[in-house]
C-alpha cells in the first residue's frame, strides 16, 4: 500500500511539455492527408426510363428551339450554324421573343429546348452547350426576380423562386444521340 501511494504521488504530475509535439505530429499528418472535399458540377435531372415509345406530344414547331451538336463539335441552332458564345443570347431571345417573331416561342412558358448530340460529340462541348442553356435560363430568372420582387434570385425565398421559375420553366428535352461519329 505504501508503495502504491508513492506511485500515485509520482503520477500526479505528467509532463505536458511534449503534448505540443504530439499534437503537431498529428496535425501534420492530417494536413498532408486532407483534401478539402469539393465537388461541384452542373446538376441535371434525367427523364425517367419508359419501355414503350411514348405517344408524341404535339408541340408547335415555333415553340421548340432545336440545338444540334454534330460529331465535329459544331453547333446548329434552328438550322443555322452558331458559335457557342452566341448561344446564350440566342436562347434568351428565343424564349422572351420581345418582337413577337412568328418563328420564336409564343410564350416563355411554352418554350422547349430540344438538345441532340452525336455519339461522337466531345463531352466538353456538350457540357458547354448545356451550361449555356442553363445560364440563359438563369439570367432570365434573375431578370424576372428583379422585375417581380426587386431582389436577386438568390435572395428570394423558396415560394418566390418557384414563382419566378414557373414563369420561365426550364425544359430541356434530350433526344437520343445520332450515330455518325463514334470513336
Amino acid at each position: 500500500m505504501a508503495r502504491r501511494s508513492t506511485r500515485e504521488k509520482l503520477s500526479q504530475e505528467i509532463n505536458a511539455g511534449s503534448m505540443a509535439d504530439i499534437a503537431f505530429l498529428l496535425l501534420i499528418f492530417f494536413l498532408v492527408t486532407t483534401t478539402i472535399a469539393e465537388d461541384k458540377g452542373v446538376l441535371v435531372k434525367l427523364p425517367p426510363w419508359v419501355e414503350e415509345e411514348q405517344p408524341e406530344q404535339i408541340i408547335k414547331e415555333r415553340n421548340v428551339l432545336t440545338v444540334l451538336i454534330n460529331a465535329q463539335n459544331q453547333l446548329l441552332v434552328e438550322g443555322e450554324e452558331m458559335d457557342i458564345d452566341d448561344l446564350r443570347e440566342a436562347v434568351k431571345l428565343f424564349i422572351k421573343n420581345p418582337d413577337n417573331d412568328p418563328n420564336k416561342a409564343e410564350k416563355p412558358t411554352k418554350a422547349i429546348v430540344s438538345l441532340q448530340n452525336d455519339r461522337g460529340t466531345k463531352y466538353e462541348i456538350y457540357l458547354q452547350v448545356y451550361n449555356e442553356l442553363k445560364a440563359a435560363y438563369r439570367e432570365l430568372w434573375e431578370e424576372e426576380a428583379m422585375r417581380l420582387f426587386g431582389k436577386p434570385y438568390d435572395a428570394l425565398n423558396k415560394d418566390q423562386q418557384r414563382k419566378v421559375r414557373n414563369n420561365f420553366p426550364l425544359v430541356i428535352s434530350e433526344a437520343d444521340p445520332t450515330e455518325f461519329g463514334e470513336e
Binding site: 458540377g41 446538376l43 441535371v44 434525367l46 427523364p47 426510363w49 452525336d118 455519339r119 463514334e182 470513336e183
Partner: peptide, 22 residues
C-alpha cells in the same frame, strides 16, 4: 465522346437514378 456518356446515362435512367451531376 458522348457515346459512352449516353450509355451510362441510359443505365442510370433504367436504374431510376435520375439526379445526376456533371
Amino acid at each position: 465522346t458522348m457515346g459512352i456518356v449516353y450509355d451510362v446515362k441510359t443505365a442510370l435512367r433504367k436504374a431510376n437514378q435520375l439526379k445526376v451531376n456533371y
